[in-house]
Amino acid sequence: MNLLSVKNLNKSYVTKKLMGKNEERKVLSNVQFELGENKILGIVGESGCGKSTLAKVLTRLEDFQSGEITLCGQNLREIPQKNLTHLVQMVFQDPYQSLNPRKMAWEIIADPIMVVEKTPRPQAKIQALAMMAKVGLLPELSERYPHQFSGGQRQRIGIARALMLKPKILILDEPVSALDVSIQAQVLNLLLDLQKEFGLSMIFISHDLSVVKHISDETLVLYFGEVVEHGPSENVFKNPQHAYTKTLLESAP
């Protein structure tokens, strides 16, 4: 059975106007895909193609108009919040803004289990330290604040936080695009290791074709809210069918 299946997903933003009709802008139309266990799905597209909106819909940060999203056999809209936190977590693009600047690293990482599982602070700290080791952060750094870390280290903290609740699916929205090339490779390697260790499925969203090609089993190309190409990464990159995918590939250096 598929972990996640998205059918005919439609979403538009409505801008209310003082006079005249409300303006409707379609961001996702008839998006359809499935995600199996232990798989990494890459989603590529340029700015404004709806890829970040898709991430927000899948994590229920935003609602959608029509379509059906099924997560582990349950309708996404009907999953109680507490259960959802154990199914889907997200890593954000900006390692500078995705961590609360007033909290220590271990507090950021431990917060999810303190909130959801009501783990007492001392135990939560122990678990957070263990997770820090798994994402390659020295436990000595646990009492530092976000601004004392480099971009790559901050992104590791974000990944550690997302993994604390042992989600089935990890959604990564441009997780490496703010990082330097040499750091990018470190984080990508880490993600591959973690996927194996935790038996995770991932949705890896990026504008960068080369990164998506490298990390994902399947690739989905979004163009103005529509899926224009979807298939095993090898095929999509070797033998693109849609004209837009071809242009994308030609443009990539």
């Binding site: 470190q186 090609k213 490298h214 590939l249």
Partner: peptide, 26 residues
Amino acid sequence: FGLLKARPSAHAGKTKEHLYAIPGTV
């Protein structure tokens, strides 16, 4: 050498393989 190796390419290379990573930070 590391910079060249660390960057995956959209045109070549295998998927889901470890990249050559330069350890540490700038």
